[in-house]
Design a protein around this nucleic acid. Sequence first.
DNA 1: TGCCTTAGTTCCAAAATGAAACTGATGGAG
DNA 2: CTCCATCAGTTTCATTTTGGAACTAAGGCA
Lengths: 112, 112
Amino acid sequence: MKWNELSDNWCPVARTLSIVGDRWTLLILRDCFLGLSRFEQFIESSGMTRHILAERLKRLVEAGILERRQYSAGPKRYDYVLTEKGQELAPALMNLRDWGKKHMPVRRATNA
Amino acid sequence: MKWNELSDNWCPVARTLSIVGDRWTLLILRDCFLGLSRFEQFIESSGMTRHILAERLKRLVEAGILERRQYSAGPKRYDYVLTEKGQELAPALMNLRDWGKKHMPVRRATNA
DNA sequence: TGCCTTAGTTCCAAAATGAAACTGATGGAG
DNA sequence: CTCCATCAGTTTCATTTTGGAACTAAGGCA
C-alpha cells in the first residue's frame, strides 16, 4: 500500500497523518504556533528546503489547515496563518513536545 | 538540512519527530496500542511493506519505544511490545485520532 | 538603471519507499 | 522421512521523494 492512499483509511490516526504526517509538515505547524508566518521564516527556522516547503504549504492550504493571506500589496506577497482547523492541532503538538522534553535529551545542540 | 539531523535539534517537537515522524511509524504504534504485537499483524493492519516495517521496528527498539520479545521457543519467534516510554506516546496519538475524527471524514472506505 | 527583497520554480543527484520474490528455522500432516 | 505451511525477516530493483543549489518573477528603492 502507498502512503498517499491513507486519506480514506478507516483509522482516523491514519487519515490525520495522510496530511500532516509527511516529513517537515508538523514542523511548519510548530512554527506557525510560534508566531511565524512567512516563507523565509519557515525556511530559516526549520532548515527544510524551499522546494519542500512550497509543496507542503500548498497541501496545508488545500487541506484547510493554513490560510494563504496577502500581507503586502506593493510587491504582492503572501504569508500563511493557521485556520481554526489548524489551531486544533495544538494539543497533539503539545504532547509531542512534552514527550520530546522528557525522553529525548539534547546531545549536541544544532543551530537550525 | 537533512531530516535525520533533527535528533539534536533545540526543539523537542523536532527531536520527537526524528524518531516517530517517519512514514508509517506512528501507525505501528497505533497498532501496538490496539493490542497487536506481531510482524505479520502489523503488515496486515497497516498495509505497509515488510521491508519498511522491519526497518521501523529496529529503530523503535533502538529508541527504547518498543521491546523485542521472544514469544515462541519452538520456532524462535519475536514480537514487539510498548515500553513505558512508548506508552507515553498515547496522548499524542489520541489527539491525532480525535483531530482526524473531527476534521477528516471518510470519503471511500478502504480495506487496509 | 541597477541592486535588493521575498515567494516561489526548476534541475538533478541522492536517499527513501513500494512491490514482489526469496531465505531460514521449525512444526506438523501424511 | 518428506513435503507443505508459518512467520520473521532480507534482497532486489523500479519508482517516488528528498536535498541542495541555482534560477525566476514582481516590485521597491537609491
